[in-house]
Design a protein around this nucleic acid. Structure first.
Ligand code: SF4
Ligand code: SF4
Lengths: 135, 135
DNA sequence: GATATCATAGATTCATTTTATCTTTTATAA
DNA sequence: TTATAAAAGATAAAATGAATCTATGATATC
């Protein structure tokens, strides 16, 4: 029960793209990978997940790379996390005892409380509130 | 990023102990294991974790077994989950960039929202609200 | 159109964690 | 003292996570 490292990488790359964002100037995966001391191919997979959820846009070919979409300011923490970790419930019981399952209800509403918070917070908030963006 | 099956087993055994609780009449791990179709030794390990956190009390020897402590009505979901999954933060970054880390703050407060909900809900609540206790 | 650049996809490897069982040891009520 | 039952240990199968390498496909630029 831990957030994966992939989520960590995803959050940091999104934040990095947000601060260095000049529209239509994509940044290559090599630079992004160096920042976080991880192999480009590995980070590439994470970025591909983000692309599929339209949280970043990719440009192939020369002078290509990754950049944020036009509506990037509305991207929340939850969006990023869901893109990496998936959207299924944290508590899943293969016995499906239907609607009345009290345990699942409790776990589900608790999870929703966390998601609410993550949905309300955007990466744009981080930049506005402070310049506490490391390295 | 999923709750472990161990947590599932723990929640169900606690619930089961709560409904069949007559003080000082412990129930053996064999019965508990049969209920959930899991090996007694495996469930035993989970129960041992609960014992160490004082969420259940164990009695060795003949006519021994597991039962709930006297203050069992105050045991929350969070207590049980923490006993199994541990108490460390869901988001841990081995880089420790100190207090000002904005990302960790967001993740931490979100996690707290979930924990608040889990702390407020007790297994006693489940029994009071409905008899929706399966099997 | 050829080429250098860069993202994507696939295959594969290594490490860690989960899940689970079996065996031995320790405790204790009767 | 003996039958019973938890606790601990050792081990193992399985699943997931983390990461790298090697193609493959797309595209600006020359
Ligand atoms: S009651 Fe809910 S959690 Fe428990 S076994 Fe049934 S479906 Fe699973
Ligand atoms: S800013 Fe926070 S989350 Fe990011 S690397 Fe530093 S400590 Fe980790």
């Amino acid at each position: 029960m831990k957030f994966s490292k992939g989520t960590n990488y995803a959050l940091h790359t999104m934040l990095h793209l947000a601060v260095t964002s000049e529209v239509d100037k994509p940044v290559g995966v090599q630079q992004l990978a160096e920042q976080q001391s991880v192999s480009p191919t590995y980070l590439s997979k994470i970025l591909t997940k983000l692309v599929k959820e339209r949280l970043v846009v990719s440009a192939s070919g020369a002078h290509g790379g990754y950049s944020l979409p036009r509506e990037w300011e509305s991207i929340s923490f939850l969006d990023i996390i869901h893109a990496i970790e998936g959207k299924s419930s944290l508590f899943d019981c293969h016995f499906n005892h239907g609607e009345g399952c009290a345990i699942e209800q409790v776990m589900s509403t608790a999870e929703l409380k966390m998601e609410d918070e993550l949905r309300q917070t955007t990466i744009a908030d981080l930049i506005k509130n402070k310049e506490a963006v490391p390295k």
